[in-house]
Write a protein that binds this DNA or RNA. Sequence first.
DNA 1: CTGAGCTCCTGGGAGC
DNA 2: TGCTCCCAGGAGCTCA
Length: 272
Amino acid sequence: MPELPEVEVTMRGVRPVLEGEVIEDLWHDDKKLREPFSPRLNELIGAKVANVSRRAKFILVGTDKGTLLVHLGMTGHLSILRSPGERLKHDHFELTMGSGIVIRYNDARRFGLVAFIPPDTDPLLSDYLKDLGPEPLSDAFTPKVLYEGLQRHKKSVKQAIMDASVVVGVGNIYASEVLFLSKIRPDRRSDQLSFEECRVLRENIRSVLALSISKGGTTIINFQNAEGKMGYFVQNLNVYGHKGEKCPVCGTPIEEMTLGQRSTYFCPRCQK
DNA sequence: CTGAGCTCCTGGGAGC
DNA sequence: TGCTCCCAGGAGCTCA
């Protein structure tokens, strides 16, 4: 379940093996991911990679012949293969670079996306990215921006911080964690939060994501081995998945509720 | 326009 | 042991 930190770490992992290299070959299977593979992806063969970046949970591979957009969905991951073996089940896409290195995309549930943005289109203005809210770790994500974003909605604060038009990159797990750290009940209406609560919430969103990225950074070496297995971040989750266990702060049993069809965990005593 | 609910997909766990 | 059922979740879609 890649959340933003895992995408960032993946992006940092593939960047050095892509930038400045030529895409020598490109392969995909005939199953569709979130949407079918575009025939225009083949235009990237022979292209030189200029830059690799991230926007929300998308990885952007910018070349002189267009941009490759990769989203890992729920179960997607990229492997860097110096001596690629045979493809495995659920391998759906790969790039062979001039260096001989193969970047391979595997995604069991096929919730991910591989898309082509033509060279005459600014990828940030493409349909995939144009409506996205601020990056949580950018200077643009101020307490005021979060406050105003939450004021625009009447849904629960948990659903609101998972809404990419408010802020990108907060998935289901971190939503519960961040609200716990902020002592805010997930089912509070987003437009009922005070400015001060938004300030605290904004701070926790940033610190949790930043910490996960820094932890993930140490897994890059592991990530680059021939196995290509990255593994999910093993981190201390305070409430997510801990229904019935004691709150680490006050000892009250953690409760679970459903918001927007998604499991939500919280401490009924700490979170107001 | 908004928010609620549904949908895609497969592996893994629970239950029998 | 083996079968069936159900759940997980990012994000786009439909509908009221």
